[in-house]
């Protein structure tokens, strides 16, 4: 059986200068490769961690998978079906199965909408009529461990951890098989980070979800990922099981990243 998600030799290029500008400046190549020759797969129930610093191409790769940016080369297969080259209307169906959890939950929620409509919004976007959005919002809140009172809350009334939970509920609304989580714990207090990661783990066990976790936080990814890729300047410089990478890092860039993590022990 093929893996749920299979990415092969993916390449995403961005134009850095307009054509005229490129001619004027004599640029041979007015493009940059944000993602270059990237291959990996994600099995059902698995967590794959994508680690790299800002600008390394992690978020672009995530966005390419859900079709928000176009791939120039390579292939992305979901349940064996090729996604590269699909029209936007055809991609809608894919986005029901692959949900994205965005980086800054408070900023990604609309400030004037109550939690109730934030969670139910995907039903509107996907024009789903056979489910009662209100009932679904209640079910989803319960699933992420928030009581019903939060239905009437506005984003600014939520703590960082509560906003993350709403983000998880929203991502779960259409019963996806894969969740792409961009920096799921960035900006959270240490004690709350654990709560969110434990919640994600429980949901994975209960619902059989697969995760692609995008992060620059090595200590966090160590505890939640089965396998890892280290990304640098658009390329995977190293992939392996989490244990392999932490115990026997091979690439000098990985070594540098691991060495930079501050040791929480004054010696």
């Amino acid at each position: 059986m093929p893996d749920l998600l299979e990415v092969e030799h993916l390449r995403v290029r961005f134009r850095t200068a307009g054509l005229v500008q490129a001619l004027l400046k004599g640029l041979d190549d007015p493009f940059i490769d944000a993602v270059m020759d990237v291959s990996f797969s994600l099995a059902k129930g698995e967590t794959f961690g994508l680690v790299g610093e800002s600008g390394s191409g992690k978020t672009t790769l995530g966005r390419a998978i859900i079709g928000l940016v176009q791939a120039q080369e390579g292939s992305i297969k979901f349940e064996g079906k090729e996604l590269v080259g699909l029209k936007d209307s055809q991609y809608q169906e894919v986005r029901r199965n692959i949900a994205m959890m965005f980086q800054d939950p408070i900023a990604s929620l609309s400030p004037r909408k109550k939690v109730r409509s934030q969670i139910a919004e995907p039903f509107k976007i996907h024009n789903i009529k056979d489910k009662d959005p209100d009932q679904e919002a209640r079910r989803l809140l319960k699933l992420v461990g928030l009581h019903e009172g939060f239905l009437e809350a506005y984003p600014h009334q939520l703590s960082g951890g509560q906003a993350r939970r709403v983000g998880v509920a929203r991502a779960l609304s259409l019963d996806p098989k894969v969740i792409i989580a961009d920096e799921p714990t960035a900006g959270l207090d240490v004690s709350v980070q654990g709560e969110i990661l434990n919640l994600m783990n429980r949901l994975q066990r209960e619902l059989g979800l697969s995760y692609l976790i995008i992060t620059h936080n090595l200590p966090v990814v160590r505890h939640v990922s089965d396998r890892l890729a280290i990304m640098y300047l658009g390329r995977f410089v190293e992939t392996g099981t989490t244990t392999e990478i932490f115990e026997k890092p091979a690439h000098p860039y990985t070594l540098g990243l691991l060495a930079a993590v501050p040791e929480p022990d004054p010696g």
């Binding site: 783990n201 160590r222 993590v261 929480p264």
Partner: peptide, 23 residues
């Protein structure tokens, strides 16, 4: 508890992290 929660201080790979319950 704060020290126990810090993922950077936990060397074994495990899936459930300690937390400080309540708020």
């Amino acid at each position: 508890m704060l020290l126990e929660c810090d993922p950077a201080r936990i060397s074994e790979t495990r899936k459930d992290l300690p937390t400080i319950s309540g708020s």
